[in-house]
């Protein structure tokens, strides 16, 4: 069953962004299953269920109440069960500190939320179809931030 689609999960506290995200995948008509969680606690609870299906790509917003994206990232990287999880940071800001912190803590790619829906669709399509193994093996600070 799992091989037929890409399972994509987003944790974002902003309702509009969750809507853009799901709408974009809907319009893309790709073989994807999308789940969204409204904060870090909800996300981690779901992932930590022993029978949970793990996503292929996890999109993490950074600025969330209760549990921030960075905290989720650290927790995930400490748990060996999630070691094959690809993590895309999905944030409004692209400040040096945020990029540095998430890179050091093992995120795979950093996406700055675009201000154009067309561009958003292009980014998500690129990320889902990305050769993660290739990307991760050659990952460095310069290609960590996704540029269009």
């Amino acid at each position: 069953m799992r091989e037929e689609y890409t399972y994509v999960v987003l944790a974002d506290d902003d309702e509009d962004d969750r809507l853009f995200f799901t709408d974009a995948f809907e319009e893309l008509k790709m073989q994807t299953k999308v789940d969204v969680y409204k904060d870090g606690i909800e996300l981690m609870n779901a992932l930590n269920q022993s029978d949970s299906i793990l996503p292929n790509i996890l999109f993490l917003d950074l600025n969330m109440p209760m549990k921030s994206g960075l905290e989720c990232l650290k927790e995930i990287k400490m748990n060996p069960r999630f070691k094959n999880l690809s993590i895309a940071i999905y944030s409004t800001s692209a400040s040096e500190e945020d990029i540095e912190d998430t890179f050091v803590n093992g995120a795979n790619i950093y996406i700055k939320k675009p201000n154009d829906f067309k561009i958003l669709k292009k980014i998500l399509a690129d990320v889902v179809t990305m050769n993660w193994q290739y990307h991760t093996s050659g990952l460095n600070k310069d290609n960590f931030l996704l540029r269009l």
Binding site: D16, F20, N63, S93, K113, N115, D116, K118
Partner: peptide, 21 residues
Amino acid sequence: ASHDLQEPLRKIQTFISRLEE
């Protein structure tokens, strides 16, 4: 400036792009 001001603006722009489209 980097986050809180940009966020609503980004949404305005995204919604406009959706309206246009």
